[in-house]
């Protein structure tokens, strides 16, 4: 449909554009909820070490599996540690690792995808075959293999997750590039004799940026899901560092009499994933991209 009077709109600074997008996102209830949850978690991640009421690793056998009380808001776990303290601290590692992991995924996946989309031909065929092959190894197996080979330190996990989740972005970036390079403005730039680099930088990136960013935001929530699954299986964060996935896995066996130790981290993790997802959704809608047709690969 025709839009209203847009003739008066002028070029905006990047900051103005960003704030406009955020306002558009927040104008829907789902976007507002998502953004608030995400912001809450980010603030919590920065401040939790200072506001935590107890020591997260203080083991006290006398306090085992206490029900929630004024002193221990969310009760205690099987080693007598404060569940509230561990819950508010439990998202920090996951949030940091997956955030930087997504950035890496975005970068290499986006650039390789654009490159393949632009050059096409044999190089494109070969790269896409390899990406397909990586896609066909179930994520959990591949991740398990990587961490069992290289360990579970942050320096390993960030690039490993970044690499693994980036291959999906390659496909999206490539498809978006394909859509763009068929357009006449690329033909026009090529006919003028611009270099490949200039075409990528000036013509393609501004037009595929949105699609790749949305994809990156989406990857973030999946990466978080994948990472906490790893933790849950015992291949992620190593104890005694508090982590939601690990906490759920530890408290699971005793949940018939101490459900609180399981519920608290579940709420923490679920809310963060839902928050990121709703935000990514609202972000996509604000940019006018439909993300519901994408498969979680």
């Amino acid at each position: 449909m025709k839009v209203d009077n847009i003739y008066k709109e002028e070029k905006k600074s990047a900051f103005a554009k960003l704030s406009e997008i955020i306002i558009t996102m927040a104008s829907r209830p789902s976007g507002l909820i998502g953004l608030s949850i995400l912001v809450f978690h980010i603030i919590l991640a920065f401040t939790s070490p200072y506001i935590a009421p107890h020591d997260f690793k203080a083991i006290d056998p006398t306090l085992m599996l206490q029900a929630p009380s004024a002193e221990y808001w969310f009760g205690t776990d099987d080693l007598g540690r404060d569940v509230f303290t561990r819950t508010i601290l439990g998202g920090r590692t996951a949030l940091t690792i997956t955030f930087f992991g997504s950035l890496i995924a975005l970068l290499w996946g986006g650039l390789l995808g654009i490159f393949c989309g632009l050059v096409g031909g044999k190089i494109d065929d070969v790269v896409m075959r390899i990406v397909d092959a990586f896609l066909s190894i179930p994520w959990i197996l591949a991740m398990l293999l990587i961490v069992s080979l290289l360990g579970t330190s942050t320096e390993v996990l960030i690039p490993a997750l970044g690499f693994f989740y980036g291959k999906g972005i390659v496909r999206v970036a490539r498809a978006a590039t394909h859509d763009v390079i068929a357009k006449d403005f690329i033909v026009s730039a090529r006919a003028r004799g611009h270099s490949n680099f200039s075409i990528i930088w000036n013509e393609i990136i501004p037009n595929v940026r949105d699609a790749i960013l949305v994809e990156g935001a989406m990857r973030w929530s999946w990466m978080l899901l994948g990472f906490s699954s790893l933790s849950f299986l015992g291949f992620g964060v190593s104890p005694p560092t508090p982590d939601w996935g690990l906490m759920i896995s530890n408290a699971r066996g005793l949940m018939s009499f101490a459900y609180w130790a399981v519920i608290a981290p579940i709420v923490g993790l679920s809310s963060l994933i839902i928050g990121i997802n709703l935000t990514a959704d609202a972000f996509a809608k604000a940019l006018g991209i439909d993300r519901s047709t994408k498969a979680p690969v």
């Binding site: 929530s221 759920i248 459900y259 839902i274």
Partner: peptide, 22 residues
Amino acid sequence: TIFAMTIPEFISATLLILIIAI
């Protein structure tokens, strides 16, 4: 569906056990 889609299997599985089985 948004909720069902975002919650990891191990969480939904744990919750199912807690609620339905326990």
